[in-house]
Amino acid sequence: MSETATEKLSNLVESIPNLYRVENVPKEEMGGLVADLTHAVYTHDSLYGDYCPILSYINCPPDKVFDYMADPYCLMEWTYSMREFKKADDNGLIVGKDKIGNTTDIYFKVVANKEARVVDYHCAWDQGEKLWMIYLNRIVDAQLVLNKPGSVVFWQNCKHPFYNDNPFPEKAPAGRPWVGNFWNMFYGGHKLELENLKNILEYRHANNLPIGPINK
């Protein structure tokens, strides 16, 4: 953009269209807009069509939850089907089997930040060059948000376009259904896995056992 054009185009927030701010949308109008967006029920697609957010309270301190989730080998415990992990390179890449896809290889690495208590799992089926299935997790101290001990785990997943089209079909085992075909079942599947995470951490914390993962 030329300098002149930049000068002409106002960058004040008031100049940006379609904002809902008290200055341009009076409370009287806002109430109706909000009510209109408030339904009695929501379709599965409207909630989980493009993103799959799930969350859970876990009665285990947030630092313990972080340490557990940031250890890649914990996924062999709390996921439904990720097993048989082996180191794939020296930069944290791991390869295992995703047994929901029979002999499918799953490559992944953990990208975590202890201070922010975020643990992201960057994964892909069949190859480890492009890790595009990314599970974003944030662990929050429940004392802050629920006024009780423990943690709240937010787990987000975004519908990357590769879920619709396998970018590396030549690397797939013959006859193996594509992971993206099951996007509509991610909410249910992930909810049960999050239940696993909760049950493992609450069991070990309540019984004062090492938090794990065990036998890695």
């Binding site: 009076p26 009287e28 109008e29 109430g31 109706g32 807009l33 009510a35 209109d36």
Partner: peptide, 13 residues
């Protein structure tokens, strides 16, 4: 009355 509210608030349409 309250034309703005009556015509803009979806609760009153």
């Amino acid at each position: 009355g309250e034309e703005l509210l009556r015509t803009k608030n979806k609760m009153f349409l």
